[in-house]
């Protein structure tokens, strides 16, 4: 069951870091920015990051100067996961999972608790503008949820 949460974290982390990268490349995203430049990458696979997919619907304005972008729904082992990112003045202000597995009570418990917490933790890393992460030796499983895997995916060739 824990793996559901892990897939969500990886997806959120990748999104956040990728937007951070785009933002620093192109300057602050304004409401008029083209959504097609905002690629969404999922890192939910067990061997780390998987390939990129273009973002789905165009961003919608929510309040003054805030852009909301929905990621594609990414298939995970336990069901589709989709996140929504809000950007204001070039900074991510919120990350919300809008679709995630809720089939069982345990799914619901895990995700209701984990998603808000994880989103806020990832935001702190985004504000730090990092290029890489040093951590105690991670194995394949730990890597999937690591910030390093998100950075790798953001620059993956």
């Amino acid at each position: 069951m824990r793996r559901i949460t892990l897939a969500v974290v990886a997806t959120v982390a990748v999104l956040v870091l990728l937007f951070s990268y785009r933002t620093s490349t192109s300057g602050p995203l304004a409401a008029s920015s083209s959504p097609s430049r905002a690629h969404v990458v999922s890192g939910g696979g067990s061997t780390g990051a998987t390939s990129a997919a273009a973002s789905g619907p165009p961003p919608s304005a929510a309040g003054s100067g805030t852009v909301v972008v929905d990621g594609n729904a990414e298939a995970t082992r336990y069901g589709p996961v989709q996140v929504e990112v809000s950007i204001a003045a070039g900074k991510i202000t919120a990350v919300k999972a809008i679709q995630y597995p809720t089939d069982t009570r345990l799914d619901q418990e895990i995700n209701n608790q984990a998603i808000p917490v994880l989103a806020s933790q990832v935001l702190s890393a985004q504000n730090a503008h990092i290029d890489g992460v040093s951590g105690a030796t991670y194995t394949t499983e730990g890597y999937v949820t690591s910030l390093q895997s998100a950075l790798d995916a953001a620059n993956f060739k």
Binding site: Q121, S124, A128, D131, G132, V133, G135, T145, L147
Partner: peptide, 18 residues
């Protein structure tokens, strides 16, 4: 310089410092 985050041991998605 490269900016290197140091993973937080209590929270692998957060950083101890940069």
């Amino acid at each position: 310089p490269w900016r290197i985050g140091i993973e937080h041991p209590a929270d692998p998605t957060g950083l101890l410092t940069v």
